[in-house]
């Protein structure tokens, strides 16, 4: 059974249909990219998957249970880190735990235990403004992880970073995702990112947005994989799929 699945989702704002008849699934421990150009309805799809918006038709299932229109069940990491500028990094990452009613002391202890792995050791008392964009994204990911270590929805999580930091973050995320068996949907319009991080890739196209292709992908190991012949072939193929729409 898929950990998260959506069947035949459609959504319109007024007369404008944004997505049409979209079905996607996410297996446990799988990282799946949703690739498509801007304005194709990727964020609308995420809002529906996270329960922030209800679809006009179709259903969302979390571990087999119908959760359509119910928010608060999956972790949602957005494009910007959305860290609260007036809270320390430790206080930021424990927000989901506190919202669940956990005591602050034990929440902070849990967070500090994961700080080294997330590259945040020694930064617990820093304010977000004192950290680089990459470090802030790490903190945002840890916060999402605390919200749901089962399913993460990541909306262009590294797009606000410079190219060098983004590349480092992608490698790091790949490692973290494997070690923790994360199940994540990642929205991206970066073909490289999709190929570097995903076990599967959905390509969204058309107006209204729909799934045009579903492609398996093997996540390459090591650095500089984007320079291999196989990677470049896959990149050309996917780019052709996107441009063909």
């Amino acid at each position: 059974m898929s950990i998260l699945s959506a069947n035949n989702l459609s959504k319109a704002y007024g007369e404008r249909r944004i997505i049409s008849d979209i079905s996607v699934r996410l297996e446990k421990g799988e990282v799946v990219s949703l690739l498509g150009v801007s304005g194709i309805g990727k964020t609308t799809l995420f809002n529906i998957l996270s329960g922030l918006e209800a679809p006009d038709s179709g259903s969302v299932f979390l571990s087999g249970e119908d959760v359509t229109g119910r928010s608060g069940l999956v972790g949602y990491m957005q494009q910007n880190d959305l860290l609260l500028p007036f809270k320390s990094i430790a206080d930021n990452v424990v927000i989901p735990l506190l919202l669940r009613g956990e005591k602050k002391k034990s929440a902070i202890e849990k967070a500090l235990a994961l700080f080294p792995e997330f590259g945040l050791e020694g930064l617990e008392n820093y304010y977000p403004a004192q950290l680089s964009g990459g470090m802030r994204q790490r903190a945002a990911l840890l916060r999402s992880f605390f919200y749901s270590s089962e399913v993460l929805l990541m909306d262009e999580p590294f797009s606000a970073l410079d190219a060098i930091t983004r590349s480092g973050m992608q490698l790091w995320f790949r490692k973290i995702a494997r070690e923790h068996g994360l199940s994540a949907f990642i929205i991206t319009h970066d073909v490289n990112e999709a190929l570097l991080l995903s076990d599967r890739i959905y390509i969204l196209g058309g107006r209204p947005g729909r799934i045009t292709h579903e492609l398996p992908n093997s996540v390459p190991d090591g650095e500089n994989q984007e320079l291999t012949e196989e990677f470049l072939k896959n990149k050309i193929r996917i780019t052709e799929f996107i441009n063909g729409e």
Binding site: L52, S71, G72, Y76, Q78, N80, L82, L84, P96, L99
Partner: peptide, 20 residues
């Protein structure tokens, strides 16, 4: 974005008021 994030985590108005 932060408000949307808090709502996605099912935070109530008083919590959002205090925290955000």
């Amino acid at each position: 974005g932060v408000l949307r994030l808090y709502r996605s985590m099912n935070a109530g108005y008083l919590r959002i008021l205090r925290d955000v």
